[in-house]
Design a protein around this nucleic acid. Sequence first.
DNA 1: ATTAGTACCTTGTATAATAAGGTACTTTGT
DNA 2: ACAAAGTACCTTATTATACAAGGTACTAAT
Lengths: 107, 107
Amino acid sequence: MNIQFKKGVLELCVLALLTKKNMYGYDLVNEISKNIDISEGTIYPLLRRLKNVGYVTTYLQESQEGAPRKYYKLTLSGQKVTDEMQKDWNVFVESVGNLLRGGDINE
Amino acid sequence: MNIQFKKGVLELCVLALLTKKNMYGYDLVNEISKNIDISEGTIYPLLRRLKNVGYVTTYLQESQEGAPRKYYKLTLSGQKVTDEMQKDWNVFVESVGNLLRGGDINE
DNA sequence: ATTAGTACCTTGTATAATAAGGTACTTTGT
DNA sequence: ACAAAGTACCTTATTATACAAGGTACTAAT
């Protein structure tokens, strides 16, 4: 899998998952891994970025199965950004599709 | 438009266009710009990379309209890579789509 | 001559994903 | 009691790519 394809999209994936429910880092890795290769070394810095720019807040919660979990919750600005990013992504994918299908709009 | 989305995909776009006909850099910029924002500062280094790894070869041709044009032509290995990258891209887009649609395969 | 358009190129900067390391907790087996 | 495995967190250094901002040089038109 081309690593470069993921640039920026993993952020969208994380945000999109958080629109459904609050999740912790390890959980996000496992969830995303069902569809896309991802490593922990990617997720944790990414989550830190999202928190720094105010798209998410965090809270700790104990676990019966190991270390305490740090849950991530979308903020209002995070929700707005997610909506916009998702639209951008769809437009982008369609644009690339046009190019790949040799589709020149003006032909 | 999210710059990060483009990472790696522009390479695919260039290669895909070259499967149809040989093109020169400035032409590629204009063609791709119809669908995606791109700058010359991106295309020329990219083309150099593609040449260095042997996906394309180049030849010069005079022009009536300005400086001589450097045409890029896909090699056999370039064609193979393009095929694979295109498949990878389609799989990737579908995977992201699954995630965004909240689609968990196992639900 | 000077501008606009065509066409090429390079350097420095920013961003994001990853590998490879590490810490610490809980449960299970011995 | 101790070790191993699984859960869960984190950091640092490396790599790759896109872009802005600069530059060069040619041609045609003003």
